[in-house]
């Protein structure tokens, strides 16, 4: 599996805004067993100084995974998604995601390499509000397994 190294440094156009809903935060928190009241009860979140429900730390992946389709479905990059496994994942937060946020993702390809027959792709997604306020930066490294 060979990925085109000329894609390094490429930045994609910002995605359409994702509206963070209270029920999605509650659903996600419930799915991971996160019972802290700040994920479920608006008053509890406000008591911590937030305007609305606080999303768990990995919640932004809902938004960034959808946004990354821009890259993995880019025919010019030529990725076989059925051979993809998740390598690394990292989040650097300016603040937690909260209900009511309208989030926009800007994807940049930070690194492309091929080693041992496998392709490696590192992307950085800057997640901001529609107003341009930074919320979280998300790095993801995926591995495209070579044909055995």
């Amino acid at each position: 599996m060979s990925l085109d190294p000329s894609f390094v440094g490429r930045t994609y156009p910002p995605t359409a805004p994702y509206q963070v809903g209270r029920e999605k935060i509650r659903e996600f928190a419930t799915a991971i067993g996160a019972t802290d009241p700040a994920h479920h009860d608006v008053e509890a979140a406000q008591a911590l100084g937030h305007p609305d429900l606080v999303a768990p730390p990995t919640f932004p992946v809902i938004v960034t995974m959808a946004a990354s389709n821009q890259i993995v479905e880019d025919p010019a990059l030529g990725m076989d998604y059925s051979r993809v496994v998740h390598g690394d994942q990292r989040f650097a937060y300016t603040r937690p995601v909260v209900a009511g946020d309208e989030l926009v993702c800007t994807n940049t390809i930070e690194d492309v390499s091929t080693r041992g027959g496998h392709g490696f792709l590192t992307t950085r997604t800057d997640v901001t509000t529609v107003g341009g306020e930074p919320v979280v930066a998300v790095w993801s490294k995926i591995v495209v397994r070579g044909e055995a």
Partner: peptide, 27 residues
């Protein structure tokens, strides 16, 4: 999902759901 469960452990150790500044793993 594994990363989310570990994230739960981290926020529970921190004692607050909004305390995580940076979090990364390799699978």
């Amino acid at each position: 999902f594994t990363m989310a469960l570990v994230g739960r452990a981290i926020t529970e150790w921190a004692g607050s759901p909004d305390a995580v500044v940076e979090y990364g793993v390799r699978f």
